[in-house]
Design a protein around this nucleic acid. Structure first.
Lengths: 118, 118
DNA sequence: CGGTATCCCACAGGATACTG
DNA sequence: CAGTATCCTGTGGGATACCG
């Protein structure tokens, strides 16, 4: 091994399953982006929608529900008048920080590469 | 900050775009899994299909084409008889190693967490 | 504002059959 | 074996309208 092509750990099968598990929970078009958006701090529904470019209300609503079910997001209702609803990341969402970091890093480098090629 | 909830870097917008770029290229249900499968070493078409559980020939074919277009995979035709076709990761696929590592690590931990909860 | 309900379509992707 | 062609379904997700 010299060029970094060999990506796998000794047993590839375990890695395959582990990656499968990850994608099952945080895969898809929006989940990670919503989480990143909330990484800035608590947000209200429409704020999130404005931050995550292109997401519709319907989809955001269902994504937030799934994220809540999976323990990444907490929904906080401030019972003032008018009622204010905030979403915030849970501690568990913090376990994704390394994933997000590497993914963002790679995306940046990849974009640069594409730029250079054109 | 004490609990790791704060996932974002100073500017979240950049991270949002970077993650978006990543997902655009390596997002989806199969791409990363095909790459991991090839991480074991070169493979033939049907070998890959057997390794990546659940993928159909049609889908694998199109995924391989996209991965080739994006510079992750090289298609090698050995012109013997019978003709043998191999797929191998390029050096560029190696740039994903950190992403794959963190993703696999997280997936493993997450599965453990789910197990404990049930 | 913070959503939910409905409708609808595009497309990912499964099944099967077929070819060199 | 290594795919391609065809067909078909499920569903992700957009648009719009509506409600408390």
């Amino acid at each position: 091994m010299e060029s970094g092509v060999q990506v796998s750990t000794p047993e590839c099968a375990g890695m395959l399953n582990a990656i499968g598990d990850s994608l099952y929970v945080i895969g898809g078009k929006w989940k990670l982006r919503v989480i990143v958006a909330l990484g800035e701090g608590n947000k209200r529904f429409n704020e999130i929608q404005r931050t995550v470019d292109g997401i519709s209300a319907r989809v955001l609503s269902s994504e937030l529900k799934e994220l809540e079910m999976n323990g990444f997001v907490k929904r906080i209702v401030h019972t003032q008048t008018p009622v204010v609803v905030e979403y915030q990341l849970t501690d568990y969402a913090g376990t994704l920080s390394e994933v997000l970091r590497t993914l963002a890093e790679w995306g940046t480098k990849h974009r640069d590469k594409i730029r250079r090629e054109r």
